[in-house]
Amino acid sequence: MTATQKRIIINRLALAFSTLSAVIALAFLFWILAVLVMKGVDALNWNIFIYEGSPPGYEDSGLKHALIGQLILVGLATLIGVPLGIMAGTYLSEYGKSSNLAHVIRDISDIMMSAPSIVIGAFVYAIVVMPMGHFSAWAGAIALAIIMIPIILRTTDDMLQLVPGTLREAAFALGAPKYKVILDVVYRGAKAGILTGVLLGIARVAGETAPLLFTSFNDNFFTTDLNEAMPSLTVTMFNYAISPYDDWQQLGWAAAFILSMFILGLNILGRLILLAGKRK
């Protein structure tokens, strides 16, 4: 066997092995999705959207409370986290640039991104839940917002830096003040990227359970009161899944399915917007 033949065989082996690894890794993803769809679609029915939670054994039980609670929590977290994240990212890219402060903020933000989410839940418990004396939607939303901020901050920073410097200079050369340059030219140029960052940030927190466990806690009933404990799909799913009741477990599967589809949808939308922005 010549050296060339040997190399060709090694090359084929390596190719086969890496392809196989990729297939195995992806297989798990599709397996999870398949199980979710089978169990989830099975458990879906209109009652889920009409009724709130009820003790096990009742016909009229649903997930309305958790669905609405989830939307309120994520919506509130978005309202808090997105402006803060975008403004902080704007500071880094347009004002801080490569100053020491900007470097420190970037590093801390990267560390925050990998902080265990339950630790953030514990932090909010200590600074919001304890002083208030009770669980609340506010506390849950703040915990989610804290997780969301570093993601949005970093994508905003990166996307703004992709806007060419000459575009900023051209706006300054027309006599634009700095805030006008940022609002009119830089944001417009980075619109698609920032929007994608926001959607991915929302998708990231929408699936969080741990930070909600002792902040917004959970409830089996429908509420829109932000000062009370608020049910969420994730915590409800957790509670129902570990319960011994068959009908609760069914609702848990439905919650898992709805949540996954929501997050998958956000991710796909985010990517589509980025693609459309790039194509232009």
Partner: peptide
């Protein structure tokens, strides 16, 4: 700001802003 409205500049690479043709010309 006033100085730059009196002394304009054209750059090496075209610097069309990400907006319509009309809005570009109307920007200043």
């Amino acid at each position: 700001i006033h100085l730059r409205t009196k002394i304009g500049m054209i750059f090496q690479k075209p610097t069309a802003f990400p907006m319509s043709i009309f809005d570009n010309v109307a920007y200043g």
